[in-house]
């Protein structure tokens, strides 16, 4: 009964979780492992999961923790620590005008590669907000950070993405 209920609630999140896992790991096999682990852990913990709370945020959080503890996640863990402190790319981003941004949006590949170049903490928060369309509150649940930190990290991530999009022209 519980299992059927879990399947009913959790399976609709499957594509979303898999896509997110791919973006995090950059590898399909790793992503499959992550998603499998996420579902196994969610199913196990489903008994303690209170109905009415946000299942999506809960499962994304389990996925994220699984990622941080995985091999590919451990490599990127340092990113998390470094990036909170630095205000890098701020200057560059200010030079990326709305017009330049418009132009960059023409190319899907440019956007994907800019996302891939981002530190994983920035990539993930932008994906959660813009791609998975989560509220700041949901994002705070997934990342286990205060809502205020969501706003500031998101701001830095967007600045960084914008710089990355603008820098693309310079690099290539």
């Amino acid at each position: 009964m519980d299992r059927a209920f879990f399947e009913q609630l959790a399976m609709p999140l499957f594509d979303q979780l898999y896509n997110h896992a791919c973006w995090l790991t950059g590898d399909r096999a790793d992503a499959e492992d992550l998603v499998q682990e996420t579902y196994a852990k969610s199913l196990k913990g489903f008994g303690s999961f209170a109905e009415g709370t946000n299942l999506r945020a809960w499962m994304f959080r389990i996925l994220r923790n699984a990622f941080l503890n995985s091999r590919s996640g451990l490599k990127q863990k340092t990113d998390y620590l470094e990036d909170e402190e630095t205000g890098a790319d701020q200057a560059v981003s200010h030079e990326v005008t709305p017009e330049a941004l418009f132009l960059a949006c023409e190319s899907q590949e440019a956007i994907f590669s800019a996302l891939e170049r981002l530190p994983v903490a920035h990539r993930e928060i932008i994906l959660l907000c813009d791609v998975d369309e989560m509220s700041y509150r949901e994002i705070a649940q997934v990342l286990d950070i205060p809502a205020g930190t969501v706003m500031s990290r998101l701001a830095r991530a967007r600045t960084n993405l914008r710089a990355s999009l603008g820098a693309k022209e310079a690099v290539r």
Partner: peptide
């Protein structure tokens, strides 16, 4: 307007990887 168009383009990232 520029940010809106960026968001629209970003939506494609949602379906980039299909299981």
């Amino acid at each position: 307007a520029a940010q809106v168009s960026l968001r629209r383009a970003m939506k494609l990232a949602a379906t980039r990887f299909a299981p």
